[in-house]
């Protein structure tokens, strides 16, 4: 496996030159200019997310617009604090809900999906191929397709309006299982075989051979699942205000008129910053996992 990613070469030497044979200078320039323009398009809204949080309200609504604040300050953070102390559900409650839903949903998914991925990658049992192809099929449609029946099922199970209503379906998302299974396939069979000869049970092998060897994959699953859970407003299943997550509170603040936009900008920044931070920390593991993600014919 290649491990060029994240290598500590100096920035200056960062352009690969060894394949100069097939690279024209004009081509390089065109591509990098194009890349630069697209990069600006991608980055500017995010820069606004950051700079808005530090703009006083009169600069937030300013003509002509300015990317960076002239008098940056923490007024918006103070606004948010006031807003938080006035809301009838304590704001810390939204944060707690988000922690429970995202943490629980992520942990459960990583455990359940990696348990299922091991036999799918390394055992031969009847039904294996059909089960896996159903999972691949499930990657081809989104949760909205199953929204209506899921509501009925969750009501029938009696878990409507509880954290479980958001967490349980998330345990069985298809993408995580798929990536995990593909990654596990590259673990050498001889490693498992020798553990078997030593008398290890399949559960033992899963815990002490497989899991330590797929660390990049479960980090990836954790980060991807975290992003999905983090963005969840839970509006479908969580009726009680006390159960709703931070994302819901954000949309409420954003939609509540110009005076709140300072506070909204701060919440937007928090919402964006946390998943991005996790990605930065785990980037090289994620890329490593993705190398095995291809659909084989």
């Amino acid at each position: 496996m290649q491990r060029t990613y994240g290598s500590r070469k100096k920035l200056l030497g960062s352009l690969k030159r060894h394949r100069g044979l097939n690279r024209s200078m004009a081509g390089n320039v065109t591509l990098f200019i194009f890349m630069g323009i697209c990069g600006v398009f991608m980055a500017v809204p995010l820069i606004f997310v950051i700079s808005n949080a530090f703009k006083p309200l009169d600069e937030l609504f300013r003509y002509p617009p300015r990317l960076f604040p002239r008098y940056p300050g923490f007024d918006n953070f103070a606004d948010l604090k006031v807003l938080m102390s006035n809301s009838w559900v304590p704001f810390s409650r939204y944060i707690l809900n988000t922690v429970i839903i995202t943490g629980g949903g992520t942990l459960g998914h990583v455990i359940v999906a990696s348990m299922a991925a091991y036999p799918l990658a390394k055992h031969d049992f009847p039904g294996k191929n059909i089960l896996f192809s159903i999972v691949v099929l499930s990657l081809m449609f989104t949760w909205q397709v199953t929204q209506v029946p899921n509501y009925l099922i969750i009501s029938k199970l009696g878990i409507n309006n509880t954290y479980l209503a958001v967490m349980l379906p998330a345990f069985s998302y298809g993408l995580g299982l798929y990536l995990m299974k593909q990654f596990m396939e590259q673990i050498p069979d001889s490693l498992i075989e020798s553990a078997r000869l030593d008398g290890a049970s399949e559960y033992r092998i899963y815990l002490s051979i497989i899991m330590p060897n797929v660390k990049p994959a479960w980090l990836t699953l954790a980060v991807l699942q975290f992003q999905t859970m983090w963005g969840n407003t839970g509006s479908q299943f969580l009726r009680d205000e006390q159960l709703k997550p931070l994302q819901y509170a954000l949309l409420q603040i954003v939609n509540s008129g110009p005076a709140r936009q300072g506070a909204a900008a701060v919440v937007t920044l928090i919402i964006a910053a946390i998943p991005i931070t996790f990605f930065i920390i785990c980037q090289s593991s994620i890329i490593e996992t993705m190398t095995t993600s291809g659909i084989k014919e």
């Binding site: 070469k9 960062s14 809204p45 995010l46 407003t233 994302q247 964006a272 998943p275």
Partner: peptide
């Protein structure tokens, strides 16, 4: 290569993971 590459990857990937920050 290296850090520059990780940084460019981040710029392009970040919007898709920034939760509901598209409200900006």
């Amino acid at each position: 290569k290296g850090k520059l590459r990780a940084f460019i990857t981040l710029i392009f990937y970040a919007p898709s993971i920034s939760g509901n920050a598209y409200v900006v």
